[in-house]
Design a protein around this nucleic acid. Sequence first.
DNA 1: ACGCCTACCTGCTTGC
DNA 2: TGCAAGCAGGTAGGCG
Length: 303
Amino acid sequence: MPELPEVETVARDLQRWVAGATIVDAAVHWDRTVRHPQPPERFVAEIGGATIRRVDRRAKTVLLHLEDGRVLTVALRMTGALIVTLPGTPEDPYARVVFSLADGRELRYRDVRKFGRIGLWPGGGLRGIGAGRGTRSRKVAEGSGRYRIGEVFSGHGPEPLARSFTLARFAARLAGRRAKLKALLLDQSFIAGVGNIYADEALWRARLHPLRTADTLDERDLRRLHRAIRQVLREGIANRGASFSDYVGADGEPGANAERLAVYRRTGQPCFRCGRRIERIVVGQRSTHYCPRCQREPVAPGA
DNA sequence: ACGCCTACCTGCTTGC
DNA sequence: TGCAAGCAGGTAGGCG
């Protein structure tokens, strides 16, 4: 499940391997993977001849900045992967879009479950992203006009690893919120890039129960949570991401972070801090893993 | 504005 | 062994 650390790994790989490369052709094998422009034939016509200037990441989306200013976005969602292959590499039945590069290599978008989306957008408006209050995700639907790349992300919250994501700013964003911590961490308009794995890991590290509500946190809780979010994401990047089934880097290799996780998918196994068995509950339709001793139950109001 | 729910997808695991 | 149900979860979009 590509979250911030996994997407960052892919973007860094691609920056090393395809920055400067020219896309000479593209083949779309699953139409709905291409979100914009529509129809896919138009997408193919518009991407042909484009040269990749730089590759980076915003939230959980890979951004391939083209020389002419346009931006190719790849949202990996659940099972998406961007893999660079050498000439002669066998075809992949799960490759939904294949970009042919001028030097003979291919940049393949592989996606077993077809949730991922690729878009091509006019540049502009990226500056200042995440500086706003983080509204609910705006409607930037397929086929509904040509939004600039900045507008695609206008509804996203701040980047948790940015220097500007300070404790004060985090506290200000949390103020007045009464949602469960788990739900809040998964909300991309609150913070960009955290998914189910790193939400559970951050809460374990901060010793906070996933059902605690944001308005019950004191200053020390806030500080621990702010720190924990940044730590688990940085460690994930250092280990090239966590692989469970489908996630791989642009080299096609899985990351090493899955075996270093403290709670995610460790139900019934001992907590690394206290030895108590990790439990699994469902919060907002998402499986949630935590230590019942280290992460104490929320106290009912008025109890 | 916010919290909650479902659809989108397919492969793997589980249970009978 | 076979087969169906359950599970995995990011996010658009709908509802109250």
